[in-house]
Design a protein around this nucleic acid. Structure first.
Length: 925
RNA sequence: GGGGUCGUGGUGGAAUCGGCAGACACGAUCGCCUUAAAAGCGAUUGCCCGAAAGGCGUGUGGGUUCAAGUCCCACCGACCCCA
């Protein structure tokens, strides 16, 4: 009988389902483990990246289950979002239908993984029973003042007719479609993200990757400084925020954001046209362009002046786009001597530069300084503060800043202040396919939330989609017409919510997706929360992960967890801080990239126009040496292809070939008529995408090798937290491994007797060493070393079986243990072989084998003899060897005798045997 | 410009507290088996020299240490995030 993955995988998937093997139920007598992996967007096809994220997470969850934990490992779909709506507009399919059929297809693909998902906990965010609670959360936040409506400069995509979050705009373009984005003022819904900034900067409770914590910290961007009030000559207050109040005396001009409210008032008539033109231009550029330090500075003088409150200096007021209206107060004091951007601006426009910080013993000259000085020094040109050290520290830790802030506060012209880069979370989307915002615009212009009994506000199904992409909600009357709490006609809000809103609380809906009294069943929450392990892509470091942290803190403060907390108390669980954070441990997997592959080697003939060949005949040939003699055309490897334009590397020279319409294309490897589009070009390692033709389809791999092999390969071939390029050849290693184990089990014990006791003892030892290595690896998400340990065990067992000296009992123990160790990685094969060994169903209900260090210990080890730290000789000694005996052995060894040549060693060190390491003696001569 | 991560054989990668660098696997070479190929099995596989002994090796250059892939400093390069 041979290993047929297709037959055994479907058989066991069915049996697991029939027996509800992975149903996770609250059981207070067992310790719980909530393992969560990021839910997919239902794009229609499961990508190899989903397998790479989910199957190792599944293996880890299975390991925890075998360690005796009651494990919850749920799955669902993040089902609102633009692609569904685009499909509706472009292909006339309703977003709901498109999404649901994709979900159905992906459920099947997810099942083929053989993962231990508890499907009864599946949650789908576009289902009204789910988004009812998303709306309910919105309403609670609104009532608590955490949700509000405000004017904002927003990223408007003219193509998609929608507002995008800053996070969704990259280089002035929409991150998904690459379409340009412009700046526009609009009334939008916001969440008071900034309410929890300080709490979100605290990671004490979290075992999260360091880079994620750093990214979040930078994203929140807390800075310490002061607010200082300048006066314009016309008498208006002009408030600025600065992190460097110690440089106030060096402020030689001011810069306002072009959108700043005071601009029109201070602008003098002769500057009006220039200012207006500049404002228009600024509206067209994106924030990232505007604040880039590399960019040539631009700006316009308003004609107005302000008075520097610390020294009475009259300084000009400019506008420039590198100052953002949304950051700080939208106005800065410019200190060109000590700020890189201000310096570039001052030099360009010939503005005064006054140094006010200098290292001891140096003397800067504002007219000749080559660049801004941002280092430490002492204050100069600053009246009574001259000589105060400025040590480069932030905030009050800097004596100069500390002294100036105290003085400013005393004089009433400034105040210590903290500023954040982070702005409130803009959740409005002018789209149809999203969770409705349950608000009503009353006839009198006021707003009120929809009554709880009317939730959810359901998305109407019967709508037509405008080809312009405009949301149908804005012109569909039955939806628009609402009734307010006084029974008067009113208009329904047509914005929908950012999909990040739906995914900010899905880990709570999984607990009880059908519960209708609340977002989640408190009984379930009391047992399962918080999430113990969260796995997913690092790209969510600053968006999703900050949103979900914010959400959890807001839920906690609104008392949403109160019932769950009471139940926890009844069961004696410590509730202190348990709802402060959604996920305690986070690990990010890397990314599987496309495989590198050579391009086709072609011979192309046709007509030359200059250097360029217009080919009417292109043929793929093998090798690079068979260039016909006197050949008139182009031959070589295809290094690039864009449609029918091919770049060919001809003996190191790049040649361009255009394949003309109707040209003959011959690709021997592909049957039938060939087209230019089938020509392979050289592909460098990069993200997989359909257009690059380097997508690895997991369904095809599962078909060819079986799910267990695909799972094992994904876990073995990469450092999971790093990822890397796909290598189709590496599969062989894990396929052989699984086949070898299969063959060993099916072959049965080589002898029926007791066999050789020394060999048996050694096999037991090796099995226990494997137990330890596999467990240690799973603990650390180091899946590749777990499989390496199992391969070592395979190698050991194969050697041992050949001797025909391994006893039946030892063989049984080794096989059973081997299957238990494999079970989390290759669940189907392990289950099948477990059954073949006559063991009771299911291998996945067994405990992980217990490790016994006594059995794993070696009796004999290599004593490593080192001279000056270099290993010279290995001598077999008892594992229990003491220091003196080890040193004597080492000194007597041939290599030491030879090296010493009668002399005395300077120093002799004994390094005792530690876990997995041999004892060592280092002799210094 | 700032912050971060990371540089290890032909390749993917191992190396738990500073303690034998290269585990495990792919690939390659040679051999066995075969009419042949595939598969399978066996051997070799960091570099140099060699009979042995040895020397050199974790991006580069320094440093700390009995001992450095691992710690410290500077530099080079790649990638990511932010500006």
């Amino acid at each position: 009988m041979t290993y047929d993955p297709k037959q055994i995988e479907s058989k066991w998937q069915q049996k697991w389902e029939e027996t509800q093997l992975y149903r996770s139920v609250v059981d207070w007598s067992k310790p719980k483990h909530y393992a969560l992996t990021m839910l997919p967007y239902p794009s229609g096809d499961l990508h190899i990246g989903h397998w790479f994220a989910m199957t190792p997470s599944d293996a880890r969850a299975r390991y925890m289950r075998m360690k005796g934990y009651n494990v919850l490992f749920p799955m669902g779909f993040d089902a609102f979002g633009l692609p569904a709506e685009n499909a509706a507009v472009q292909r006339n399919i309703h977003p709901y239908k498109w999404t649901i059929s994709n979900i159905q297809r992906m459920r099947g693909q997810l099942r083929s993984m053989g993962a231990m998902f508890d499907w009864q906990r599946e949650a789908v965010s576009c289902d009204p029973s789910y988004y009812k609670w998303t709306e309910w959360f919105f309403k609670r936040f609104y009532e608590a003042g955490l949700a509000y409506r405000g004017e904002a400069m927003v990223n408007w995509s003219p193509t998609l007719q929608t507002v995008l979050a800053n996070e969704q705009v990259i280089d002035g373009k929409d991150e998904r479609t690459g379409q340009p984005v412009i700046q526009k003022m609009m009334t939008q819904w916001f969440f008071r993200y900034t309410r929890y900034t300080d709490e979100m900067l605290n990671f004490d409770k979290l075992d999260w990757p360091e880079p994620v914590k750093i990214m979040q910290t930078n994203w929140i961007g807390r800075s310490e400084g002061a607010h200082v009030t300048f006066k314009t000559e016309s008498g208006d207050d002009l408030l600025i925020y600065t992190t460097r109040p110690d440089t106030l005396w060096g402020a030689t001009f001011m810069v306002l954001a072009p959108e700043h409210g005071l601009v029109s008032k201070i602008t003098t008539p002769d500057q009006r046209d220039a200012v207006k033109a500049y404002q228009d231009q600024a509206a067209r550029s994106t924030e990232i362009e505007r604040v880039s330090e590399d960019r040539e500075k631009t700006g316009v003088f308003t004609g107005g002046y302000a008075i520097n409150p610390v020294n009475g200096a009259r300084i000009p007021i400019w506008i420039a786009d590198y100052v953002m209206v949304t950051y700080g107060t939208g106005a800065i004091m410019a200190v060109p001597a000590h700020d890189v951007r201000d310096f570039a601006f001052a030099r360009k426009f010939g503005l005064k530069i006054v140094p006010v910080i200098q290292p001891q013993g140096e003397s800067f000259n504002g007219d000749t300084m080559p660049e801004a000085y941002v280092g430490d020094g002492v204050m100069v040109n600053s009246d009574q503060f001259n000589g105060t050290p400025s040590n480069g520290m932030k905030g009050r830790k800097n004596p100069a800043i500390d002294a100036v802030i105290t003085w400013l506060e005393g004089k009433g012209i400034g105040k210590e202040a903290v500023n954040y880069r982070l702005r409130d979370w803009l959740i409005s989307r002018q789209r149809y396919w999203g969770c409705p915002i349950p608000m009503i615009h009353r006839a009198d212009g006021t707003l009120e939330p929809e009554a709880d009994v009317n939730l959810p506000v359901v998305l109407p199904e019967n709508v037509d989609f405008d080809p312009s992409g405009r949301s149908p909600l804005t012109y569909y009357d039955p939806f628009l017409q609402a009734v307010d709490s006084d029974g008067k006609p009113a208009r329904r809000e047509t914005d929908t919510m950012d999909t990040f809103m739906c995914s900010s609380w899905y880990q709570y809906r999984y607990l009880s997706p059908n519960y209708s009294q609340a977002p989640f069943d408190p009984e379930e929450a009391a047992y399962w929360l918080p999430v113990d392990v969260y796995t997913g892509g690092a790209e969510h470091a600053t968006m999703h992960l900050l949103y979900t942290r914010w959400f959890t803190k807001a839920m906690r403060d609104l008392g949403v967890f109160d019932d769950a907390e009471a139940i926890m108390r009844q069961h004696g669980r410590d509730v202190n801080g348990v709802f402060d954070e959604p996920m305690l441990l986070l690990r990010n997997q890397g990314q599987v990239l496309g495989a590198e592959r050579p391009g086709d080697y072609i011979i192309a003939t046709g007509k030359f126009v200059g250097e360029k060949l217009f080919a009417n005949h292109v043929e793929v040939v093998g090798g690079s040496n068979d260039v016909p003699k006197g050949f008139d055309g182009v031959c070589g490897e295809i290094v690039k292809r864009t449609e029918n334009i091919i770049t060919v590397d001809m003996a190191g020279v790049k040649r361009t070939v255009e394949v003309v319409d109707g040209a003959k294309v011959i690709i021997p490897a592909i049957e039938g008529e060939n087209t230019v589009n089938q020509l392979k070009h050289h592909l460098e390692i990069q993200r997989m995408s359909k257009s690059k033709g380097n997508v690895v389809n997991p369904d095809e791999l599962v078909n060819a090798y079986g799910a267990d092999s695909v799972r094992a390969y994904l876990m073995f071939a990469f450092d999971w937290e790093k990822g890397g390029p796909w290598d189709p050849n590496g599969m062989k290693g894990v396929v052989n491994w699984i086949n070898d184990v299969w063959d060993m089990v099916l072959a049965g014990a080589p002898i029926s007797g007791e066999g050789d006791s020394a060999l048996n003892r050694d096999i037991e030892r090796k099995v226990h060493q494997a137990i330890d290595k596999v467990a240690y690896s799973f603990e650390r998400f180091s899946f590749n070393t777990a499989i390496a340990a199992l391969m070592i065990l395979r190698n050991t067992l194969r050697e041992a079986i050949k001797t025909k000296q391994i006893g039946k009992a030892t063989w049984d123990f080794a096989m059973k243990t081997n299957l238990l160790l494999m079970a989390p990685i290759t669940p189907h094969v392990a289950e099948e072989l477990w059954e073949k060994l006559g063991q009771p169903y299911s291998v996945h209900n067994q405990l992980f084998p217990a490790y016994d260090p006594e059995i794993a210990a070696e009796d004999e080890v290599d004593l490593v003899v080192m001279i000056n730290g270099k290993p010279r000789e290995n001598i077999k000694v008892s594992a229990e060897i003491g220091e003196q005996e080890a040193i004597d052995t080492a000194l007597a060894s041939a290599s030491v005798q030879r090296a010493l040549n009668g002399a005395q060693p300077k120093k002799v060190l004994f390094i005792a045997s530690r876990k997995g390491q041999e004892p060592k003696v280092n002799i210094v001569i």
